[in-house]
Structure formats: structure tokens, C-alpha cells
Amino acid sequence: MEVIKSFEVFLTICFFYIKLWFIYLARWYEPPLRTKGSYNHAIVVLGDDHALGVGDYSSMVSGSGIAFKLGRELAKEGAIRQSWQIYNRGEYKTNTEDWLHPADSKRIEKPELMIKLIHDPKYLKAEIVIVMLGSYDTLQKNPSLTPQDTLRNLELICQALKRTGNERKSIYLCTIPTAGDDVFLTEEQRADNLTRNLLIEAYATKNDDGVLPGLHLDLASNFEMKRRNLYWRDGRHFSDIGYTKMAKDWIPLIRPDMVKREFALFRSDLGL
């Protein structure tokens, strides 16, 4: 019996890493521009596993995660008249310290993800940036990251995003998903994640850095996220159904922003 269980665990681990390999391949899949007019716009999704799309179905010829699902949902939107391309810049198991600009990091070996991002031509033209970070901060050991550290890092990340690329961009900051915390985290770690999300909500609501509230992905503030079918078999990462739901939830949140940007571009082109 023990041998069978060990074999099942081995198969689950193998399946997970094969799935992750396909997700990384799919991350660089750039779907054809969904043409709805002669004007083009861009959205960038950055963050950890939840931005990357871990848990989602993926293949070498289709994207994964919120970036792919959001593009698919936008194609159905009648109010969106111009073309929007969504780029996946999620990184597996990254915490907020990993995404700091080198100038803001206290590490001896400076993180490079932000530098790579802000030199990406696709980011430079982005008008909307979605940030999904913080899930791995509670697991960070060296150095350990408190909820206050997480908030400070997110502030620095959003400030770095704001001052680079399109100066008129909108930055949407999501709360940290907490599904599976009761299984994978200690009571103290769960309490820290609750505090993190309260700090994130307060920061995004103040809008001091031009940061806007993104989706509430935690169980405490969004009861809709408690559905079991929204998550992959580990109970922590989102499933295909979960990413699809998120994409649909994003539409009413960012639709006014997108319509305003489309109209502004149209007016500018006409010299109005």
C-alpha cells in the first residue's frame, strides 16, 4: 500500500513539472493580435505562479494563465473597439524581493527581473500593468519578509513601474490568493498573509502612487474564491476554471479604463 501511495506521489510530482514546462513554453506564445480596429494597445501581467498560470491547461500552441484568458474574454467585448495584446511576464516562485529594481534592493546579488521587464519593448508600450505578487513572501526565509516588508516592496515595485515606460499607464494591484493556506502554512504564516492583504487593500485604495485596486483573490475578502473547482488538485494554484473566472472578473474592472484610453487615442488621431 505504501509503495502504491509513493508511486502516486511520484506521478503527481512528475505531472506537475511537465505541466510547468508547458506553461513556460506557452508563456512566450504570443497570440495573433485580436484586431478590432487600426489602433493597438498592450497589457502586461507580472508576478509569481498566479501570474504565470501554474495550474492552468497549456500547450505549445496556446497561452496559459490570466494573460491568455483575458485576451480571449476581451475578444468577446462589444464595448472594446480597438486591439489589445496581453503579455505574460509571470515568474515561478518569485517573491516581492525578486521583483525589486536593483537600486531598491538590499541584496548583495541584485535581482534582475525588473530590469529585464523595463527593457522589454512590449512593456514600454503597455498602458495597463497587472501585478500579482506576494504569495511566496511568507515562505521566504533568508531574509524573512514581514507583511510590512511585502507592502514596502510592492510600493517600490509599483513606483518603478510607474516611472518607466508609458507614463500614463495604470497599475492594478491584486490581493494575495490564500486558498490552501490552511494546509500549507502555519497559523502565524496565515495571520501574516491576512495582514499583507489588509495592507495591500489600504495601499491600493489610497492610490498615492497611481496604483489601483485589482482583483480580490483572497478568501477573506472575496467569498466567490472559496469554490473548490477554481483550484488545481493541490488546492493552491488556480485551475483552468479559476483563471477563466478571473478573466471574466477583470472585464468590468478595467473596461472603463480601456474605453477611456481608446477614446483618447481616437480623439488625438483626429486632432480633437
Score class of each variant (00 low, 15 high):
K106Q: 11
L253D: 08
Q140K: 12
I130T: 09
L265C: 13
W28H: 15
D104P: 03
W21T: 14
P147Q: 03
E127W: 01
A126R: 04
K19H: 14
N40G: 09
A191L: 10
K116W: 04
S62P: 02
L161V: 02
A191R: 12
T175C: 11
H101T: 00
A51M: 05
V129L: 07
D240S: 14
S59K: 02
L194H: 12
L46Q: 03
W84K: 05
D149K: 02
R89H: 11
D49L: 03
D249K: 07
I157T: 01
D149E: 08
T164H: 15
I4T: 13
Y87F: 15
S135M: 10
G55T: 06
G271V: 00
P31G: 08
Y92G: 05
R196Y: 04
M1P: 15
R89E: 10
Y243T: 05
I108W: 09
I43H: 09
P252E: 08
P252R: 07
L217K: 04
I108M: 12
A202L: 11
K206W: 00
H119V: 00
K122P: 02
L117W: 06
W232E: 10
D218Q: 09
A26P: 09
T35W: 01
E91G: 01
D192Q: 12
E73S: 02
C174M: 08
R190F: 00
K162S: 12
D181K: 03
K162R: 15
R196M: 07
D181V: 07
L156G: 04
